[in-house]
Design a protein around this nucleic acid. Structure first.
Length: 986
RNA sequence: GCCCAGGUGGUGGAAUCGGUAGACACGCAGGACUUAAAAUCCUGUGGCUUCACGGCUGUGCGGGUUCAAGUCCCGCCCUGGGUACCA
């Protein structure tokens, strides 16, 4: 037996796990209700063409460790993996190449699988789920139909069948804020009219709404898919557009999504992000009587969270999209106000965001009456008021709202103080605390009480009532794309109807091109016979997040053809016990996923109200990019034709040269210029076919902006003890893509690149492939190293510095079992001594606690300490090393299996039992007390742990070292903390 | 602006309830083995100071509480993430 040959060991065991029943059976989760269950889930990946990089496995390794640990602890563990396979990149690739996205996806999945297998994960592949598989999306479509057939019953606070609602309309009619009609009126309506009314209650509904339209992608996007006015994928501009769209009524669940957060063990930052996204605000609606009524409207309604500041109102502001805008604009102001509103409305989201600081608005010419003082208040139109939130109108209180303040300052409107505490000549006082002034019946009250009293008064006068608003908008659900689940809806005389459940799945049709039709319809409109029972089918498809909103349920029973999962499976597995994934899904997937879970619970299909009991966000592993400085040389060639010759070249200057050139005060500056010029001269001769460069106007030569471009072919070198990132110029020169680049190196060192830590991405040449790491160091080392890097939740740059240490540790561990000159396996059956047992049990304790606290980095160091100590004791006792194999096996399963087998076991180590920690072995009867004086530790003294405090104090004071630190003074106090420390106060 | 997380050696990071700051690892320096390399092992390694024993100082900054503060409190600064006219 030679030394630790990880390549052989890992290959052997991966083969055995895959094919040998003794080794593969244990990972299959069964619905065996006699055992406690534990469901560990990773957020499944989108199988991109780039493959996995070292950042992907971080979370998978952590969840794999927990899964293996729980199995050893006797749990029935469900630990599946699958693919979120619908999405834009495969479709974009299809548009470019004509290759069917299904094929691209299949190839990518095969590659992902190969990479995952190399790392030795214990996924139960018999439970695999792929969202683009019709057998899966059949149920995604089925859930859509359930959403379509449901409405939100606000009294029961639960989703309920639309049939209930219809029955109610037929017998009682309807009388709510939205609709007022009698049963007779309902019956008299046409099918179309009824359908339209029902659509405004269904949880999946078609409506005309302002949506985020992305022309470059040719599709609409949900709010969470838009970041800073551009699409999250691709960074294309997004505009607002009025369109008829399928949406999901997630807003109905706003309150439950908010309160549900209190009961789940998720990180504060994710919970906080969701709370902000839901954006609950409690306040009051309030009607302001119009000076001149408009048709049936006698008042203008606003929403405010600060009804207490009602006496500070100095104007009303309405959104440019406000329904009464046209009528409100009167008199001399009419045209100017309408023009302004028109201009504001047409500005794109991006422009509007960019101009947040520009204060714009116009007076409409209309007035309303103050509800308590009857004073006339002007109505303005302003783009800082959003049409889609509240009532699209606000009561402006410049004294106590910073936006109103800025607006009032700009247009010279009155600023009234109604809450004491600020200095209104400088800024508004927005805080919700202080005493009310200038406020009639509210005077003297604190803000909190004033809000209550104001709402009471408002309700009493019938001016409005207490109300809660949410920022959360309904989620746009239709996408004008090919590669997604078809929406199982057809149109009968223009009325949307759902397909029969028994006819599902509605499979994606084959089409000739993955582009919109000439008339601008979505790609599905290209399909021949895209009809159902002779009627046209919906042509939009579902968004990327549809399939991922319920996949955790399918894993429980993935091959069920009768239901999305069997009742037994759902009852047993219930919900995810541990969910691991990135925090970037905070306001997207993680919200929709909770929404669908609550919906399915309402309909009685599942018991869980929340999908994941605990959520852990692994931090991103970033890449280190090498950046070459890009020097733009201008006004440099003395030729008259600027298109001539060398402007097509890009000059790249080594970092150090660039730094010197950008600092003209540097004494090296002139020298460097000369150096660079000479380099360019050489280049001009060799690359420009003899055409020489004119360097006549030296003073104008170096006008450059320092920019960085990511670059490949680099390596770290140590120069004068400093690590620098150097470009391999020979390799670069052989690359065709760099034929138009000129690299100018430092004289002695070569081409030094700048470095930056950023997200791993193909375009930045900073991707590290786990396959390479597995090949160079082994999968066990990769697993341990990724855990050792730092806390799971933290973002950290990938660096292979330090990976050697982990490999060294595994070698040391191996050597404990092969500690003889021939390096043969040999363990002693001698009984362990106290010191050895202490080391073992200390490690069992630490490893157990650390897994439960997700503190994987510290348990790796505990293993290292343990092996170092056993090595010092030259321990090779079976009774110590065998249990150690078990506790290391979740982290490094290959080496653990190998050694376990060598120990003479013929089952998989995964079927072993986690060793039991015995505290007796850690019991100490002595402690080496640090003796401190005024908090500073000076020396140590040994005492029995059960020593008498008084005796200890006497012994300490009698010690000659103590005398030295007392400097002849009497101690004021001696504090003895048992088993911790002694502090003498002088 | 608001919300959340964080700030510890040359580096990644440890430090349970306030109780010896820097575990473990990398890197670096020196040494052993070797023809050599790889591998392995040993010693040292926060800073300042001292021949040495030792002393002083030290967890972003400024205060405070305490016998004792990286940890608790108050006020700032900085970094990362989320969100942004949400009334």
């Amino acid at each position: 037996m030679a030394n630790y040959d990880f390549r052989r060991i890992e290959k052997d065991w991966q083969t055995k796990w895959a094919s040998h029943p003794v080794y593969s059976q244990w990972l299959k989760a069964s619905v065996d209700t006699s055992k406690p269950k534990y469901y560990v889930l990773d957020m499944f990946p989108y199988p991109s063409g780039a493959g996995l990089h070292v950042g992907h496995p971080l979370g998978y390794i952590a969840s794999d460790i927990v899964s293996r640990f729980k199995r050893l602890k006797g749990f029935n563990v469900l630990h599946p993996m699958g693919y979120d396979a619908f999405g834009l990149p495969a479709e974009q690739y299809a548009i470019q190449t004509g290759q069917h996205p299904a094929k691209t996806t299949e190839e990518n999945i095969a590659r992902y699988r190969e990479q995952l297998d190399k790392i030795g994960f214990s996924f139960d592949w018999s439970k695999q789920v792929i969202t683009c598989d019709p057998a899966y999306y059949r149920w995604t479509q089925w859930i859509f139909i359930q959403l379509f057939n449901s409405y939100y019953n606000t009294e029961k606070n639960s989703a309920a069948p639309v049939s209930e609602l219809i029955q109610q309309f037929e017998t009682l009619g309807c009388n709510n804020e939205q609709h007022q009609f009698s049963a007779e009126q309902w019956k008299a309506m046409s099918d179309k009219e009824q359908s339209n009314i029902l659509l405004s209650y269904r949880l999946a509904f078609l409506s005309e709404a302002m949506v985020n339209w992305c022309p470059a992608l040719g599709t609409v996007l949900a709010n969470d898919e838009v970041k800073d006015g551009v699409s999250e994928r691709g960074g294309h501009p997004v505009e607002r557009k009025l369109m008829t769209q399928w949406s999901l009524r997630i807003s109905a669940y706003a309150e439950r999504l908010l309160t549900g957060l209190d009961g789940i063990d998720w990180s504060d930052s994710i919970k906080e992000a969701q709370r902000n996204w839901i954006g609950k605000s409690v306040g009051s609606s309030l009607h302001f009587e119009l000076e001149k009524p408009i048709k049936d409207n006698h008042s203008l309604e606003v929403f405010t969270t600060r009804p207490d500041t009602i006496f500070g109102v100095s104007f009303l502001a309405i959104a440019p999209e406000h329904a009464l805008l046209d009528e409100l604009c009167t008199g001399d102001q009419r045209q100017a106000a309408l023009d302004y509103a028109e201009k504001a409305k047409n500005r794109s989201e991006r422009e509007r965001q960019a101009e947040v600081k520009n204060i714009t608005g116009a007076f409409t010419g209309s007035y309303v009456k103050h509800p308590f003082t009857a004073e006339l208040i002007p109505v303005w139109v302003a783009d800082y008021v959003l049409g889609g939130y509240g009532t699209g109108a606000v009561m402006a209180v410049p004294g106590h709202d910073s936006r109103d303040y800025a607006f009032a300052k700009h247009f010279n409107l009155p600023i009234i103080e109604v809450v004491k505490g600020g200095d209104l000549s400088v800024e508004s006082y927005d805080a919700k605390e202080g005493e009310l002034v200038n406020s009639d019946f509210l005077n003297g009250l604190q803000v909190k009480d004033a809000i209550k009293k104001a709402i009471e008064a408002i309700e009493q006068k019938g001016l409005g009532k207490g109300k809660t608003n949410y920022r959360l908008r309904d989620a746009v659900f239709g996408r004008q794309r090919y590669w997604g689940e078809p929406i199982p809806v057809y149109y009968q005389d223009g009325i949307p109807m759902c397909m029969d459940e028994k006819d599902l799945p509605l499979q994606l049709p084959e089409i000739d091109k993955y582009l919109p039709t000439e008339t601008g319809e979505p790609p599905l409109a290209r399909a021949e016979n895209w009809t159902y029972k002779g009627m046209p089918l919906e042509t939009t498809t579902m968004p990327g997040w549809a399939g991922s909103s319920w996949y955790f349920l399918r894993y429980m029973d993935p091959n069920n053809g009768e239901a999305f999962a069997s009742e037994t499976a759902l009852k047993y597995w219930k919900e995810i016990d541990l969910y691991v994934g990135g925090s970037e899904h905070a306001t997207g997937h993680l919200l929709y996923f909770r929404f669908w879970t609550k919906f399915l619970k309402d309909l009685g299909f599942i018991e869980a109200d929340e999908p994941a009991r605990k959520l852990v966000n692994q931090g991103m592993i970033q890449g280190v990019s090498s950046l070459a400085n890009n020097l733009k040389v201008s006004k440099w060639v003395g030729t008259e034709d600027p298109n001539n010759s060398f402007f097509k070249y890009t000059f790249l200057l080594s970092s150090e040269l660039c730094d010197i050139l950008s600092d003209q005060t540097n004494e090296k500056y002139n020298q460097t210029i000369q150096f660079v010029e000479s380099q360019l001269n050489e280049f001009s001769v060799s690359h420009l076919d003899g055409e020489s460069l004119s360097l006549s106007e030296k003073e104008d030569t170096f006008h450059f902006s320092k920019r960085n471009i990511p670059i490949q072919y680099t390596s770290y070198k140590s120069i004068n003890g400093k690590e620098v990132n150097i470009l391999d110029i020979d390799a670069i020169n052989n690359e065709n893509q760099f034929k138009d680049y000129v690299f100018i190196c430092d004289k002695n060192v070569g081409f030094i690149c700048d470095t930056a830590v950023e997200k791993m991405s193909k375009s930045k040449w900073n991707v590290v492939n786990p396959d390479d790491v597995c090949n160079d160091y082994g999968a066990d080392t990769l697993r341990l190293y990724e855990m050792f890097l730092g806390p799971l939740q933290d973002a950290k740059p990938w660096s292979t510095q330090g990976i050697e240490g982990v490999l060294r540790f595994l070698r040391k561990f191996w050597r404990l079992f092969h500690n003889n000159p021939e390096e043969n396996f040999f363990l002693s059956d001698e009984a362990p001594d106290k010191a050895e047992l202490k080391i073992l049990h200390k490690t069992i304790k630490k490893a157990t606690e650390d897994i439960e606290n997700f503190s994987f980095n510290t348990s790796v160091s505990a293993f290292m300490v343990c092996v170092n100590e056993l090595q010092d004791l030259k321990c090779n006792k079976r009774s110590i090393l065998e249990p150690l194999c078990i506790i290391l096996s979740p982290y490094a399963p290959h080496i653990a299996e190998e050694l376990w087998q060598q120990c003479g076991n013929n089952n998989s180590i995964s079927t072993a039992e986690w060793p039991v920690f015995n505290p007796e072995y850690l019991v100490e009867n002595e402690f080496n007390y640090p003796i401190s004086f005024n908090g500073k530790v000076r020396f140590n003294l040994n005492f029995a742990l059960d020593a008498d405090t008084k005796a200890m104090e006497d012994a300490i004071l009698a010690d000659e070292q103590t005398q030295k630190y007392l400097e002849g003074k009497a101690p004021k106090k001696v504090i003895i903390v048992k088993g911790k420390i002694v502090n003498v106060v002088v």
